[in-house]
Design a protein around this nucleic acid. Sequence first.
DNA 1: TTTCTGCTTTTATTCGAGAAAGGACATTGA
DNA 2: TCAATGTCCTTTCTCGAATAAAAGCAGAAA
Lengths: 300, 300
Amino acid sequence: MPRSSAVYKESYNRCLEAIAEIGTGGNLPPETEIAETWGISRTTVRAVLKRLSKTGIIDWEGRRKAILRLPHSEDFFTSEETITTAEKVETAFMELILGGDLAPGTILRESELARSFGTSPSAVREFLIRFSRFGLIEKEPNRHWVLRGFTRSFAEELFDVRELFEQRAFDQMLERGPEDRTWKALVALQAEFERISADIENRYMEFPRMDEAFHKLLFEQLQNRFVEDFFGVVTMVFHYHYRWRKSGELTRNRLATREHLEIIAALREGDRQKARDAFARHLQSARTSLLESVHWEEEG
Amino acid sequence: MPRSSAVYKESYNRCLEAIAEIGTGGNLPPETEIAETWGISRTTVRAVLKRLSKTGIIDWEGRRKAILRLPHSEDFFTSEETITTAEKVETAFMELILGGDLAPGTILRESELARSFGTSPSAVREFLIRFSRFGLIEKEPNRHWVLRGFTRSFAEELFDVRELFEQRAFDQMLERGPEDRTWKALVALQAEFERISADIENRYMEFPRMDEAFHKLLFEQLQNRFVEDFFGVVTMVFHYHYRWRKSGELTRNRLATREHLEIIAALREGDRQKARDAFARHLQSARTSLLESVHWEEEG
DNA sequence: TTTCTGCTTTTATTCGAGAAAGGACATTGA
DNA sequence: TCAATGTCCTTTCTCGAATAAAAGCAGAAA
């Protein structure tokens, strides 16, 4: 089997949506424009148009791409069909290590994973090389991979670096004062946090997204590719954290939302010491929360 | 072509050396022991023994592995034969981007690189995925890789993070006092630095190795896998730095050697403030030195 | 019994092939 | 005249195959 034609199928779906917007009797824009809009090649656009023509949704000849009928739900490719092999491997692997309750030291075999994911060994191999960046797995050359695991030391090391970066970013922002881009951006998040806070019982699930936005701003403050890279690791881990620790979620998110609002309030008042303290408190409670979710104590 | 049998050839060479040590009339240890000593499998050991037997170097039957003659230089595999494809790709790629004087934004094609390296596209692909960790290249999905390049901003961002980590490590060490493992280890490097310093005109080439050892100790102080990972990036860059900036090398290394000795002297005296100042000065001059070696100003 | 060996099975590394997606260029038509 | 199309070639993504290397198991030797 060759590559999955996910780009083609995804583009086809998007095109169907565009057609629904334009409506019957309308005309699709030039190939070049479609390609540019979605960041794909004209080759793929033409493949999509060909199929649209064959299924009788458009009448395509030369520059004429007249819409004959609106698409119905059966015309669309399913979401399973529009994912690439690489995405499939990633999803399957994350499911495995996040839900699998695997002990640190567990041996991961490329061939075994490939069989269970229903992909080729090479696809798994490439994914593992990419994923090794996160420090959760290690390769024994000419042998297998070993899961280092989401252990206490992993969480602590992660948080130590995170704190170092964020603290530095926060201080830099405070030094630059209220005209700083990040300062303003953080303050601008107030409304969203308040909306969540006001109806926390129903909207606590919206917090993780906001938390990520808040901290992303800080990581970007330093304008450093290594810092931003590291934010990718943090994001991955917190995604896991939020996803697998459902008990007490409301309480935790309520606390964290309040902490964010306190930081923002201090910034609005222009009280730097207060802001610094509030931020330090927030990092501390985030650390505690993360460490509580660790279920493996020691490295394998 | 399958895998390169580099392990086999490398092991064969090592076995020849061991045979020369033992001498004619001696006997090689059990397969298990040989395998364990070099961290390879018994399968490979047996392949090596088979060849040793066929070339008449040993008489092998069951447990008897009697040495018949000493190996001569023609018996050894050449160093070209004992490297894996992965190593070959790595070397070739580093040569290209370090010596190639490529502008930031240069497009790197897997197939093109594969042709010029004489390996398969997959080998190149895997290497690039691994190498992308260093922040010097980026992938445009379904397209090519783009060289971000060794630019001023790359060097500055690298050094900012390095400084953050090393400064923290140094402070932690100072807090813990003269009994700290790193403190003692740094002081222990004095003799080596003095030996270089005493004959700097002839031994300045030995400095990079010592510099790396010095800073490695600091990076390890924090006992953090993310920090240690980052040290890998720093090492790679400084390897480049030392390798391609030959002019003024003596002057730079003389200065840096002196700086290291100043830090160590302050530690021996137990004067923390002096040590902190000396260390800050050293980082500053290292930064200047690195930035001077950047030949590309802007990102592409 | 405990090593160590001989043989067999499984896994990792590397390559090459085939289809999808990208890109270049000549040609068409408003 | 120039944007848009038709055509063709190149590159990437994914798989499968072949051999090196690892790993397991039964039996022989000490």
